[in-house]
Nucleic acid binder design. Structure first.
Length: 204
DNA sequence: GGGGGGATTCGG
DNA sequence: CGAATCCCCCCG
């Protein structure tokens, strides 16, 4: 993980819980814009009641069961898209939800898609916000982030991994998922102004 | 064929 | 705090 540049299939082929904290400070490149991942959540497939894959493969979640390094995009609440990085070997449904980015480039493009007048820290401070900012929608479900053939890539620009990574409960899970709502599978750069939510002061 | 619920966001 | 606003999935 020390190298700079394109990531490998093998990097993503591990478990989501292992990959999720390592996504911090990698750069997600979208259409005319890019942002550094500062918040991400691991989802554990059939072992995780909060995962879309908990009850097996369906048409909606099929990408999660596919090969690693692809983007799983889902549509929710009738208006929003959210993006996950698919992890694990093909056939194993693991994913990491990208929850917030620190804008790196193309802020004008982000603003034109998100709406003018927004502060920099409002552009990508949420899973649906960052999809809108980067121009990601349902058509991007399945996009290969390693080859970048769909115009979306995840790269290592050499920025060192953050120190003192925050680890805490995932966001937005209903009580019906039970104990899974308590798993400390949310990772974030402590104190980053672009987070979807503030991290508690004493990070873990 | 129908109904319940959603890994969210924004405004009042 | 609740509406917006669709689609997917499961059950009958």
């Amino acid at each position: 993980m020390a190298g700079t540049g394109r990531l490998t299939k093998e990097f993503f082929a591990r478990d989501s819980l292992e990959v999720a904290p390592e996504l911090l400070n990698l750069v997600l490149v979208g259409r005319g814009a890019a942002g550094r991942i500062v918040e991400a959540e691991a989802y554990g497939g059939e072992l995780d009641a909060a995962s879309h894959a908990y009850r097996g493969e369906t048409r909606r979640n099929a990408t999660m069961f596919g090969p690693p390094g692809h983007l799983y995009v889902y549509f929710t609440y009738g208006m929003h898209h959210c993006a996950n990085v698919v992890c694990g070997e093909a056939g194993v449904a693991r994913a990491v939800l990208v929850r917030a980015l620190a804008p790196v480039s193309g802020l004008d493009a982000m603003r034109s898609r998100r709406g003018g007048g927004l502060a920099d820290t409002e552009l990508c401070s949420g899973p649906a916000k960052l999809c809108q900012a980067l121009g990601i929608d349902g058509a991007d479900d399945g996009a290969d982030l390693v080859t970048g053939e769909a115009g979306l890539t995840l790269v290592d620009d050499g920025t060192p991994a953050p120190t003192g990574v925050f680890c805490g409960r995932r966001v937005g899970l209903s009580a019906r998922v039970g104990a899974a709502a308590l798993y400390p599978w949310r990772f974030a750069v402590p104190g980053d102004p672009n987070l979807s939510r503030r991290t508690p002061s004493g990070a873990r």
